[in-house]
Write a protein that binds this DNA or RNA. Structure first.
Lengths: 186, 186
DNA sequence: CACGTCATGTAAGTTGTTACATGATTTG
DNA sequence: CAAATCATGTAACAACTTACATGACGTG
């Protein structure tokens, strides 16, 4: 048996408001997508499973004349399942896979100028991500003190600050490491 | 077509020295396992594929009287394939999945005392990991200056420092966030 | 009216996990 | 001699990706 994380991620998203498969797909392109995501093809299949497990119910909302939005709502069973899952501490943490670092492990086989190009590429991607996350933070929380943040927004606050912290640390490490590369003869 | 990352990870590991499937499994339990890993069941299958693609060759080494170690060695084709893969910059970065943060996003549905327990659990796991990584660093590099590290060890150096940096940042964020949780009434 | 987005789904293939299966070697 | 580790493999299942497939709606 797998850990059924997508199942619970969807239940969690539906706990905020009713959503269509399309809406859920969109959520995974926002901040929470920094920590979990799935493609629409997987989401539609999972929604069917959740329906058959009676954890969610479905109703149709019309978007215009003919375009159907299949909306999904947590059942009380679904809410219970979510609440139970949330409080279980995870004993193991999965490998946070990172192909760039994997490649660096084999740096011996990369020509020096190519190493610098790889670093610059990562630096650009990570910096852009960091800038985007900081902008999001500004827009949502501005200069608000964490103790004054609305309870409804607290989850969002933690996800954003964690993502920002992760990228800040990544960029810093990239800068330091590139300095070392540049100074070394190898 | 997938990105065949395990394929290239194995080619990379074999570029250092000949290894058995068991050895490779072991490597993924060491530092590089912080950034990529696979189970033995997947590794044996991948080795077969690499053999059929002529990227590696196989020979038998005896370990005792009857116990066979099937050793694998990069072919020149395999080395070429590795070197080509290493220099291609990755334009997209995959989601670094983290179930703890996913759960936190739904903090609204977690009782306050359980939140603290979840945080403490993560703190313990991450701190232990950090301590282990720092110990590894000390053992391998001691007080050595990064500019004096042997070229053969440079990949190892970057992987270790990145892992340490990641966990330091994680632990720091956990501490700050737990403080906020404790101070808030919610 | 073309293009981008909204909206849902299936099919085929790849990757990854857990469990099943077996036997040898080493160490206390 | 028991338990841990060494060593290799297969089977079944679960998770994930890419491509295929279709059609509606809104805006310039």
């Amino acid at each position: 048996m797998g850990k059924r994380i997508l199942k619970h991620a969807i239940l969690g998203l539906l706990s905020k408001k009713d959503m269509s498969g399309y809406d859920i797909t969109g959520e995974f392109k926002e901040e929470i997508g920094q920590f979990w995501s799935a493609k629409h093809s997987q989401i539609y299949i999972e929604l069917k499973k959740l329906l058959s497990e009676n954890l969610i119910s479905q109703y149709i909302e019309m978007s215009g004349e003919k375009l159907e939005r299949k909306m999904h709502r947590l059942t009380s069973e679904g809410k219970k399942e979510l609440e139970q899952w949330l409080v279980v501490p995870d004993e193991t943490i999965e490998t946070e896979k990172d192909v760039f670092i994997l490649k660096l492990y084999f740096i011996k086989h990369i020509p020096k100028d190519k190493v610098e190009a790889l670093f610059r590429n990562q630096f650009n991607i990570r910096s852009a991500k960091l800038a985007y996350l900081r902008e999001q933070y500004q827009q949502i929380f501005g200069e608000q003190h964490p103790l004054e943040i609305d309870a409804d927004q607290l989850g969002h606050y933690f996800v954003l600050t964690k993502a920002i912290s992760r990228e800040e640390s990544y960029v810093k490490w990239l800068e330091q490491s590139l300095e070392i590369i540049k100074k070394r003869e190898y």
